[in-house]
C-alpha cells in the first residue's frame, strides 16, 4: 500500500524530470540555434534543481509545518538528483571540464551524486537486512546494550570461576572473547552482509570449549549465546551506522557544491554575461 504510493511518486517525479530535461534540452537547443548561449538556460535550471535538492534538508528541519510529505520529497530528491546529473552533462557539454575551478566543482558534484546514489542504494537494501535480524534496537542505545551484554558475560565468567573453581573460561575470556565483547566488531562484514562475526565466534570464540567440563560448558554456552546476540547488535550497529554516516559525506559535500555553484553563477555573470 505504502509501497505503491511511494513508487507512484517516484514514477511521477521521474516522468516530470524527463519532461523537464526534455524541455530544458529543447530550450537550450533553441537558444543555440538562435546564436544564444545554450548553457544559460541549462545553468539556471541546474541551479534551481540544486537548490531544490538542498531544500530537502531544510524541509526536514521544518517538519512542524505541512510542506508536503517527506516521502514525496525523497521521491523528488531522487528523481531531481538523477535529473541534476543529466542536466549537469547537458550544461557542461562535457563529462570533465577544462578549468580548475570547474574541475573542482565537477569533482564535488560527482562525489555528491555518487554518494547520493550509493546512499539511496543502501537505504533500500540495508533495512531489509536489519529487519531480518529479528531484533530491533535504537542506534544510540547500542553502546549501552553492548555494555550490558559485556557486564552479563563478565558476571557469567566470574560466576563460573567462582562456582567451578576453574579459570579456563576466564582466561579464554580475557585472552580472546574480551576483544569481541568490548565494542562492535566486524563492521565491514556486517555492512556487506557477511557472517565473519558468526564465523569468528564459532571458530576462535568457542576454541576453549573442549577443555571444559559440564558445569563450565553450561556457563560457557550462555556466554556464546550472548555473543550471538551481540553479533546481531553489531549488525545493527554497522548497518544503522552506515545508513547515518553516508550523510556525513553527502550533506557537507552538497553544501560545498551549492556554494561553489552559486559562486560559479556569480563568476559567469560578472565575466561572461
Amino acid at each position: 500500500m505504502a509501497q505503491g504510493r511511494s513508487s507512484g511518486a517516484i514514477v511521477t517525479f521521474g516522468v516530470l524530470s524527463i519532461a523537464v530535461f526534455a524541455a530544458a534540452a529543447w530550450a537550450s537547443h533553441k537558444a543555440w540555434l538562435d546564436l544564444g548561449d545554450p548553457s544559460i538556460i541549462t545553468g539556471y535550471v541546474l541551479l534551481v534543481i540544486m537548490l531544490s535538492l538542498g531544500f530537502f534538508n531544510v524541509r526536514k528541519r521544518m517538519s512542524m509545518v505541512p510542506l508536503g510529505s517527506a516521502r514525496f520529497w525523497l521521491a523528488f530528491h531522487v528523481a531531481a538528483g538523477l535529473l541534476a546529473i543529466a542536466m549537469f552533462w547537458l550544461h557542461a557539454g562535457l563529462v570533465w571540464p577544462i578549468g580548475l575551478y570547474e574541475r573542482v566543482l565537477t569533482s564535488l558534484f560527482y562525489l555528491v551524486s555518487i554518494t547520493g546514489l550509493l546512499g539511496y542504494g543502501i537505504s533500500r537494501m540495508l533495512p531489509r537486512r536489519l529487519a531480518q535480524t529479528e531484533i530491533e534496537i535504537i542506534y544510540e542505545r547500542i553502546p549501552a546494550e553492548i555494555a550490558e551484554i559485556r557486564e552479563k558475560v563478565e558476571a557469567l565468567v566470574f560466576e563460573c570461576t567462582e562456582k567451578t573453581g576453574s579459570d579456563t573460561v576466564a582466561k579464554h575470556y580475557i585472552g580472546t572473547l574480551n576483544w569481541f565483547f568490548s565494542r562492535p566488531r566486524f563492521w565491514v562484514s556486517h555492512v556487506v552482509g557477511g557472517d565473519a562475526a558468526g564465523h569468528w565466534l564459532r571458530g576462535p570464540g568457542v576454541a576453549a570449549r573442549r577443555y571444559l567440563n559440564d558445569p563450565e560448558v553450561e556457563y560457557f554456552d550462555q556466554v556464546i549465546e550472548l555473543g550471538e546476540l551481540k553479533c546481531l547488535i553489531d549488525r545493527h550497529y554497522a548497518c544503522q551506522g552506515l545508513l547515518k554516516k553516508w550523510l556525513l559525506v553527502h550533506v557537507p559535500l552538497s553544501m560545498a557544491v551549492i556554494i561553489m555553484a552559486v559562486w560559479h553563477f556569480i563568476l559567469v555573470n560578472v565575466y561572461s554575461l
Binding site: 500500500m1 505504502a2 526536514k60 517538519s63 508536503g68 510529505s69 516521502r71 520529497w73 525523497l74
Partner: peptide, 28 residues
C-alpha cells in the same frame, strides 16, 4: 494542535511510518 496532521507520518522519507486503525490494517 498542529497544522497538517501527525508530523511523524509526514516526516518519514521512506513511507515506512503510518498511523493505522488496526481493523483496516493490511501491511504490504
Amino acid at each position: 494542535d498542529n497544522p497538517g496532521g501527525p508530523a511523524c507520518v509526514r516526516a518519514c522519507p521512506h513511507g515506512a511510518l503510518s498511523r493505522v486503525h488496526f481493523q483496516d490494517f493490511n501491511p504490504s
